[in-house]
């Protein structure tokens, strides 16, 4: 027994070191969403394209949906844009957009140039709806289930890997 007690500090150090080593591999800038498994917040946004409909909470639910927060001034948004375009072409899951703190004319020009993958886009000029969703950096992408609950949040551009490994499998699972 005294022998075992001898190596206890070493074991303790090993456990703490392993804990910190795992912590170092994580990106501290990626925060978990406080809204996971909670219903999407109340919001009702006007459209970006004149004459089209806006985007509101009432549009969520019924089926699994993807919500993407983007802006024309946001460089990583441009990076993820082709991935979203491909998603809209190949997947029948509706993709909705929240245009975050962006000028209408800028957003329309941006979408005209790069293509518009969104079924509906709401314009959040003040960024208030962004705060309701807990957005702290664009782009952010949310998976919303049939009941209108937020099931997943992706912070930063959705790169092909994240789409293939995280978002698409989750959508498939939620559709079952």
């Amino acid at each position: 027994m005294p022998r075992l007690l001898f190596i206890l500090p070493l074991l303790l150090f090993g456990a703490i070191a392993a804990y910190f080593a795992v912590g170092l591999t994580k990106d501290p800038r990626l925060l978990p969403s406080a809204l996971i498994d909670k219903p999407a917040p109340e919001f009702d946004l006007p459209p970006v394209h004149d004459g089209q409909e806006g985007f509101a909470k009432a549009n969520l639910g019924g089926e699994v949906k993807l919500v993407n927060v983007f802006a024309s001034w946001c460089v990583p948004c441009k990076v993820e844009h082709p991935v979203l375009m491909r998603f809209a072409e190949t997947n029948d899951t509706p993709l909705y957009g929240i245009n975050y703190k962006d000028k209408k004319t800028d957003a329309v020009a941006w979408l005209k140039q790069l293509g518009d993958p969104y079924k509906r886009i709401g314009q959040d000029l003040s960024g208030r709806v962004g705060i309701e969703w807990g957005v702290y950096g664009v782009p952010e992408t949310y998976v919303v289930d049939r009941e209108g609950r937020i099931r997943y949040r992706h912070v930063g551009p959705v790169l092909p890997d994240a789409m293939k490994e995280k978002i698409l499998p989750l959508i498939e699972e939620l559709k079952k």
Binding site: L31, S33, A34, I131, G134, Y136
Partner: peptide, 8 residues
């Protein structure tokens, strides 16, 4: 704020 952004 905590309801939207968590304890962080």
């Amino acid at each position: 704020l905590i309801a939207r952004y968590g304890d962080f």
